[in-house]
Nucleic acid binder design. Structure first.
Length: 968
RNA sequence: GGGCGAUUAGCUCAGUUGGCUAGAGCGCCACGCUUACAACGUGGAUGUCGGGGGUUCGAGUCCCUCAUCGCCCACCA
């Protein structure tokens, strides 16, 4: 289904684009042939619908943004490249004898008349009948049963039965099953126990009641006894096979090799005939005898009815049955035996395992390695043919031959006359599995089939072999076959060119975990096979976006968000930043989805009900007007305005974009008279050294995070820095300095170099807004930097990544600044607590040690602009006088004189609360420190830190108590 | 059935080698349109870190176990 999934989201990756191209070309071809069938029509309809709605929206938006779009060219170039690569690869594998033809059960969708792949199948539990039929034993001996009872949910498949199986050793199988159950019982939790116990009870009863019969049947099977298949009057053998589970049903199981995967395995082991009774459209074929041409449904009823007439129905029970359904047509799947092309994986899989085990390909997070190795370790051959009409058609021409002389003649003709010698075409001869000529004739099988694989498209050879009666194989290749070539086919392989030389192997593949096996493993295999080197060195598996119920977003559930809607509402940068912000290593992301009413902008939560594809319109619960959903089809529904599909989780990112834009606006407004110039480090103020220090740590942090795929860390670090440090402190402090003519030039240069680095760091996750700011910025201050200015690159997208010298990082300065931030916070808190009007100026004093005093003094001036407060005194022995409010912080006590406007009760309540908090913490610390084990065993620096913390807390408690006393 | 992951504030999520007095955004409460920003500013409230055991001086973090949820693979007379 990958082809179709990506089809709805063009541009998500190149494989998607390539697939889309192939689909459309095939649609065109089919239309030219003027073949009609229901499934194809429906699909084409959907494709055109999609093209109108989605592609046009994308192109329209790109055009609105002033982009020119050469979509057509991109598409066809990729298509051609991929088609060639696919043929070259298939040919290469064919020539190495790694491609072979065999039988496989496929999931057949009878309404679309195509096979569907496993990921297009969903299971649904339905209440259904479970029939127990009796098959007569031929010539029962005395003591032997007259019938064998089998059970089925699909009665019509009995027409294709070719055996009934019993277990070869029912006694020990039951014994073993009992042991397993007992083990499970011992380990089980409360809730599971009764169920297991019940099974055990049933089992012990079975062992007495049924075991003798099963042993008897086993012996009959060994003796080669046969049963009569009712209705068909065909003799079928009773066989022994471990697939028959003695503990289930009657212990006997009917074997239908052509219509059931497990039965198929049994059939292979026992060399049973395999009878396919189905036509592609779901009606029964000639093998079904008198039931021919009936639909499955009708045949099912008829079979039951006929068996009832023969008194061969033992019982019918109603049960919950899990049935596989086709996702596309919503009809039940019928397993069907079909000829398939396989890739032999033994050697190929090993190369891909080695690439990862040896570390040549690294997986991040590492936990995904296990699944990858386990899957490849099974080395199961890869069935690559699909019975669909879109995709890359298999480049093989085949012709069946009926006798040895024809075979020899044709092969030598191919080799001698057509010069097929494995250089650009190759021959395989597939001998029929049936050795007996009479039986072959009966079944209409050829002696052998000659397959010719041709490497190049439009090779004249294609025509020549067709003239010899060869017909091209109808099947197309699995989507993943071409996707596996993505890393090199998109670079022009098999043609050598500088791009391929330069870019292969690529550095990193970023993808979703559910296609590690389907896509990643196969890319490694094909890369190694075609290029003799791994396709990438790192594979980053990103988290998945889930909806608010924790379910994967998918079209079939209808619970996705629409990225274009998010862009329309919040902006492209908000989408990108938001995604980065959510991308953490372990956690999948839950994204609640809302519809936005196009009339009143009310937000309507998406529910399991209103997201369904049957819901075409929704009534807004605020304005009561209706709007259409993404599923709208009828003209009336589509005439309604469409509700955007959004998630409010992108608001954070939208607000951040806005903040950044406003801060930049401020910066540019104040750079109108900017003059580039050297910055003398000795002239820097504390806040300058602080912001440089922070900038250095932040750029290191961001670089490191991006290097290690920690996108959310990068986004968070930048968000916090830009908002809380750059905007809330540095920009605020610069305001004072801008109004001072003497200080202005230095302040401007510092602002310019800070903004410069910030924009560079933000660009990867907010490309559009930072680029816009960057280019405006260049008009005001094109030369900037610390300490010496340099010409800034004209375009941010190709600008240098910042690497600040680590000696700019000054922990002491950051500590010093933290003291200021604490003091400022304390003053603001008092203002707020006391409800002091914002315009009212207040005065305060600080009690603190000499070292703190020295740290704070250069910054005292900012209390005026940032808190409308003035520091009167800062000393070790400052004491509260008169009516005052105090706040204690780590290493200081801030005292605000409040005579005139104190709210005594508010202050007392606050102090009481603070006191409680401190007392609790102090008790905890005291307990810890009085524990001898802790003091003895913990590292000395930890103990010292705890002691210090306790002293600080006790000091704070003391001053709180003093304040409480003074307030009465 | 096998494997992987999750469970932290009302919601969505951070929490590096155990040192935590558990954080952020949204939402909530109070005050404020102060010349970058109301998509904003300042301050505030909010947690038995799913339950139970264990290891340790010390557990949100490590181990065991139970519960719930999700994903992948296999199976489904």
């Amino acid at each position: 289904m990958q082809g179709f999934e990506t089809l709805w989201m063009p541009g998500t990756d190149h494989a998607g684009i390539a697939t889309q191209a192939v689909v459309e070309r095939r649609v065109q071809e089919e239309e030219n042939k003027n073949r009609h069938d229901l499934g194809r029509e429906a699909l084409i309809d959907r494709i055109w619908q999609w093209k109108d709605q989605y592609e046009q929206r994308i192109i329209g938006q790109l055009k609105q943004m002033g982009c020119s779009c050469d979509w057509e060219r991109t598409r066809f170039t990729l298509d051609d490249v991929c088609a060639k690569a696919v043929r070259y690869t298939f040919f290469d594998l064919f020539r190495k004898n790694l491609i072979y033809r065999g039988k496989r059960l496929v999931n057949w969708d009878t309404s679309l008349q195509t096979a569907v792949s496993d990921d297009e199948v969903f299971n649904e539990t339905v209440r259904g009948s479970f029939w127990h039929f009796k098959y007569p034993v031929i010539d029962p001996q005395p003591g032997e049963p007259e019938h064998v009872v089998i059970a089925t949910t699909r009665p019509e498949t009995m027409l294709a039965d070719t055996a009934v199986a019993v277990h070869p050793d029912p006694e020990s199988a039951l014994e073993k099953y009992q042991q397993t159950l007992q083990q499970k019982l011992a380990l089980a939790g409360e809730s599971e126990r009764p169920g297991i116990q019940q099974k055990l009870d049933e089992l012990s009863e079975q062992r007495t009641s049924r075991l003798p019969l099963l042993i008897k049947l086993r012996d009959m099977a060994r003796a080669g006894r046969k049963l009569m298949l009712p209705l068909m009057d065909r003799e079928i053998p009773l066989i022994v096979d471990e697939w028959a589970k003695p503990e289930l049903g009657s212990g006997c199981v009917k074997i239908t090799p052509a219509h059931d995967a497990n039965d198929y395995e049994v059939g292979k082991r026992a060399e049973l005939p395999m009878i396919n009774i189905l036509n592609p459209d779901g009606t029964l074929n000639a093998e079904a005898g008198k039931y021919q041409d009936q639909t499955i449904e009708k045949a099912r009823k008829q079979v039951v009815q006929d068996l009832e007439a023969l008194e061969l129905v033992e019982s019918i029970e109603q049960r919950d049955i899990e049935l596989p359904f086709s996702d596309r047509s919503k009809t039940p799947i019928e397993p069907l035996l079909a000829d398939q092309w396989f890739v032999e994986m033994e050697r190929l899989a090993q190369t891909a395992m080695d690439a990862v085990s040896s570390g040549r390909v690294e997986m991040i997070p590492q936990r995904y390695v296990k699944g990858y190795l386990d899957w490849l370790g099974e080395k199961r051959d890869w069935p690559v043919s699909r019975q669909l009409w879109w995709g890359h058609q298999i480049p093989v021409w085949s012709k069946p031959v009926d006798d040895e002389s024809d075979l020899e003649r044709l092969v030598s003709e191919l080799k001698d006359d057509l010069k097929i010698n494995d250089t650009s075409a190759s021959i395989q001869v597939e001998h029929s599995e049936e050795a007996d000529p009479a039986r072959r004739a009966q079944l209409g099988l050829p002696l052998a089939t000659i397959h010719v694989c041709i490497q190049r498209e439009n090779d004249p050879l294609e025509k020549l072999v067709e003239d010899l009666g060869f017909v091209r194989v109808e099947d197309v290749l699995d989507t993943w076959f071409s996707s596996a070539l993505w890393t090199h086919s998109t670079l022009g392989w098999p043609d050598l060119n500088p791009d391929l030389e330069y870019f292969y192997p690529t550095s990193v593949l970023i993808t979703s975990r559910d296609i590690i096996t389907l896509w990643v493993a196969r890319m490694v295999i094909m890369g190694l096979n075609n290029m003799d080197d791994v396709p990438f060195h790192q594979v980053y598996i990103h988290p998945k976006i889930l909806d608010k119920f924790g379910e994967t977003m998918s079209k079939s559930k209808g619970n996705g968000i629409d990225p274009l809607d998010v862009i329309e509402k919040f902006g492209a940068d908000a989408l990108r930043f938001g995604m980065a912000h959510m991308t953490t290593e372990t956690q999948d992301v839950r994204l609640p989805v809302q519809y936005e009413c196009p009339h009143c902008e009310a937000s309507i939560e998406q529910t399991r009900q209103n997201r369904k594809s049957t819901v075409r319109r929704i009534k807004c619960n605020q304005c009561q007007k209706e709007f259409s959903t993404q599923w709208a089809e009828s003209p009336e529904d589509r005439a309604l305005p469409r509700g955007l599909i959004l998630s409010e989780r992108f608001e954070v990112a939208r607000n951040f974009s806005n903040k950044l834009w406003n801060a930049s606006r401020f910066a540019l407004m104040n750079l109108d008279d900017y003059a580039a110039g050297e910055i003398d480090p000795s002239e820097l103020k504390i806040e300058d050294r602080w912001i440089l220090s922070r900038l250095a740590s932040v750029s290191r942090g961001v670089t490191d995070a991006l290097d290690h795929f920690r996108y959310s860390d990068a986004a968070r670090v930048l968000y916090d820095f830009a908002w809380d440090e750059f905007c809330s402190f540095y920009v605020e402090m610069l305001k004072d300095r801008f109004s001072d003519a003497a200080a202005r030039p230095l302040a401007q240069r510092m602002l310019a170099c800070t903004l410069d680095v910030l924009l560079r760091l933000l660009h990867p996750i907010m490309p559009f807004i930072t680029e816009e700011i960057w280019q405006l910025f260049g008009q005001f201050a094109s030369r900037r930097g610390y300490p010496a200015p340099a010409d800034a690159e004209p375009v941010l997208i190709s600008a240098r990544w910042p690497a600040l010298p680590s000696d700019l990082q000054e922990p002491e300065i950051e500590n010093q600044f933290a003291l200021f931030q604490q003091a400022l916070g304390a003053v603001r808190e008092i203002r707020s607590r006391q409800n002091i009007a914002p315009r009212t100026e207040i005065a305060f004093r600080i009690r603190a040690a000499e070292s703190v005093k020295r740290s704070l003094e250069p910054l005292l001036t900012y209390f005026r602009s940032m808190a409308r407060a003035e520091c009167l005194q800062i000393d070790e022995d400052v004491a509260a006088t008169g009516v005052s409010a105090t706040v204690t912080r780590d290493e200081m006590e801030i005292i605000v004189d409040l005579s005139g406007h104190i709210d005594l009760d508010a202050e007392k309540a606050r102090l009481q609360k603070e006191k409680q908090r401190l007392e609790k913490n102090i008790a905890g610390k005291r307990g810890k420190l009085s524990n001898e084990n802790f003091v003895q065993n913990a590292p000395t620096d930890i103990v010292a830190r705890e002691r210090q913390a306790l002293a600080k807390l006790e000091d704070q408690l003391q001053s709180i108590n003093a304040s409480l006393d003074s307030l009465g």
